[in-house]
Amino acid sequence: MASVASEDALTKASTEGAQDFVDAYYTALQNSRPTISTYYVPKTTAPDGTTTPDIIWNGNTYEDGLEFQKMYEDSMPTFVHFDVQAIDCQILNPQYSKETTTPGGMGVKPERNISFLVMTAGHMRLEDRSEGPLFEFSETFLLVPNLEKGGKGVMGARRGWLIQTQSFRYVVVHDPVLTAGQTAMDIA
């Protein structure tokens, strides 16, 4: 049995993991779209029929990271800008994998053997930096350790955490008529 890390170590790993993940992931959505799929767990169906990853974007569902990446590449405007204003996280499972070694043959440190929730909130701007449609968004991720880390060849092998569950929502739509006048002030 893998052991459980101290509260300090868990907090450090989850909160710093959340910030690093948020930095990298939203940057990828903006200008590294071919890498988007590498942020997701591989598509898997459990014996009870539950499939992962589970991805919802404004009520639209996507089968896996590749399908979500394709949506971003094909349908999202070239200019997409995120301004993440709030981040929080909580650990769901403090002992994610029961194995001391993983299929990749690498041991996972106890404080990284966790699954955790990340919640973000902020602005999302489309099409144009100053005049494009503007939304407030809220997003929830459930991240799990990348157990294949250390495997070779795949870009995703470098990532510490992968998305298992994701739910994105616009929560405020900025009025297009008011946008021009108000947003500069709101964003400043």
């Binding site: 204003q85 981040i87 909130a121 902020g122 939304f135 407030e136 405020v172 009025d175 108000q182 964003i187």
Partner: peptide, 15 residues
Amino acid sequence: SQFSMDVNTHALRDS
């Protein structure tokens, strides 16, 4: 059980 709260003071505000 865990509970945490955060405030986003920069969120877009209804007019």
